[in-house]
Design a protein around this nucleic acid. Structure first.
Lengths: 113, 113
DNA sequence: TTGACATATTCCCATATGGGAATGTAATGT
DNA sequence: ACATTACATTCCCATATGGGAATATGTCAA
C-alpha cells in the first residue's frame, strides 16, 4: 500500500505547508482564487489544486460570485485536530508542573537556611 | 516534485493514522516495541518503521533497557501543531457566539411579546 | 458572437510511500 | 559459543503525489 490520499482526511490535507498557508489566509475572510495567488505567490493551477484537496476534506467552503470563486476556511473541520493535540496537553503541563514543583521545593529549602 | 517526506515535519508524520495511535499509546508511559505490536495489532517491522519516522521528527524518544527499546511520546513536539490549530479557535468560538447572540436576541423578542 | 478574464482540469514525471517478506543486528541466558 | 529474544533494516512494488505546462471550462462585457 502507498501513502493515504491527501483527500482522505484533514490530517493528510494539512500536511502540505502551502495548504496550511492557504487556510491561514482564508480564515479571517473569504477570498477569490486570484487573491490567494497574488498574496501567497503561488501559481494559479497549483492554488486551484490545493483548494480542491482542502474542499475534499471540508477544510474550505466555496461560493461563486460572478466569475470569482470565493473560498473561506471552515474552522470546524480543524477542530478535531485541535482536540487530538489537546489530549497531550496534560503531559506537557505535567512537565511544567514538575519544573514548578522543583523550583518551589528549592525555594523552600533556601528559606530554611 | 512529489509529496514531502513523512520525516520532514510533525504534520507529515502524524498524517498516518497508525502513527497517531502509537503516539496515543506512548503518551501515558514508555513502552517496548513488543508492547506496541501486541496492543495495536500491527506487525513488528511496521511498528519499527513508524517509530523511526516519529523519532525522525522528535515526536518520540527512545531509551534502551537490555534488549528492549523503550519509546515514549515527546509531547513538546506536538505543541506547535496544537498552537496552529488554536489560531482557528477564535473563528469557531466566533460562530458559537453568533449562535448564542442570535438565541439571546430571539429570547428577548419573545419576552417582549 | 467574440474576446477577455477567472478558475479548473489534464497530462507528464520524479519521488516518497507503507505493507509484506526476508534478513540483519544486538543483548541475554545457559 | 550458541540459541533465543527483541528490534531494525532492506528489498520489492502498487500507488498517490505536487509542480510545470498546456488546455478546458465558465462568466461577463461589448
Amino acid at each position: 500500500m502507498a501513502r493515504a490520499a491527501t483527500t482522505s482526511d484533514a490530517y493528510n490535507a494539512v500536511a502540505e505547508p502551502r495548504r496550511r498557508e492557504i487556510l491561514n489566509y482564508l480564515a479571517p475572510q473569504e477570498r477569490a482564487v486570484g487573491d490567494i495567488v497574488a498574496s501567497l505567490g503561488l501559481r494559479q493551477p497549483s492554488v486551484s489544486k490545493h483548494l480542491q484537496v482542502l474542499r475534499g476534506v471540508g477544510l474550505v467552503r466555496v461560493r461563486r460570485n460572478g466569475r470569482h470563486m470565493l473560498y473561506r476556511t471552515n474552522p470546524d473541520a480543524i477542530r478535531p485536530m485541535h482536540e487530538w493535540t489537546q489530549t497531550f496537553e496534560r503531559y506537557w503541563t505535567h512537565q511544567l508542573n514538575r519544573i514548578k514543583e522543583r523550583a518551589e521545593a528549592k525555594a523552600k529549602a533556601l528559606d530554611k537556611k
